[in-house]
């Protein structure tokens, strides 16, 4: 009788151990999914901000029609992009186009002095920051999740339970990598 109880006790302990590790992994994975969703929230916010920006800038930058049209086009493409790969490229193009606009603004002192534009500039640069911080938080959560499922003891649970490694977000576009933080 005693050996049976010992066996059952060990089995119960093993099941409890499995459950606690499994639950921990689920939490970490949800964390990763949530962090990924946060990036989309910020990208969407940037899309919403652009019409306002163009409206403000239009009057001052009549000669820059090309730049403004490029932004409108990049925004439309980013909004209709399908799949992460295509979206990543379109968003990178949009970042590049916006950066081009901010460089050109230097030539319009009236615009630069306008309160409306200054407020928009803060919003835009903050949104850019938010996008990169959301990506950073995503990468942090992925790193934590990946190292958890690859190390002992969680890897013993992760394999059979189907927890697979997640990809880190990496900048594919060299131009975007070169975008500097907006200075104040």
């Amino acid at each position: 009788m005693a050996p049976l109880f010992v066996f059952l006790g060990i089995l119960a302990a093993l099941v409890l151990w499995f459950v606690s590790i499994y639950n921990g992994l689920v939490h970490l994975r949800n964390y990763v999914d949530n962090a990924w969703a946060q990036i989309d929230v910020q990208l969407k916010r940037r899309h919403d901000l652009i019409p306002n920006l163009l409206e403000t800038v239009k009057g001052y930058m009549a000669h820059e029609r090309g730049t403004l049209e490029a932004i409108t086009k990049a925004r439309a493409e980013a909004m209709s992009a399908k799949g992460p790969a295509q979206a990543g490229q379109a968003e990178a193009a949009l970042s590049g186009a916006l950066h081009g606009l901010m460089v050109n603004v230097e030539r319009y002192p009236d615009l630069k002095a306008s309160q409306n534009f200054l407020a928009l500039q803060e919003e835009l640069s903050s949104t850019e920051n938010k996008i990169s911080f959301a990506r950073q938080a995503y990468n942090d959560s992925v790193t934590r999740y990946n190292s958890r499922i690859q190390t002992i003891p969680a890897n013993l649970v992760a394999g059979p339970a189907g927890f697979s490694k997640r990809e880190l977000f990496e900048l594919t576009d060299a131009a975007e990598r070169a975008v500097p933080q907006v200075k104040f």
Binding site: Q38, E123, S126, K130, F133
Partner: peptide, 16 residues
């Protein structure tokens, strides 16, 4: 206080 609020929001995102 747009800048302060934005900075707090940026850090909230970074801190998840």
């Amino acid at each position: 206080a747009p800048q302060l609020y934005n900075v707090v929001e940026e850090m909230r995102i970074a801190a998840a």
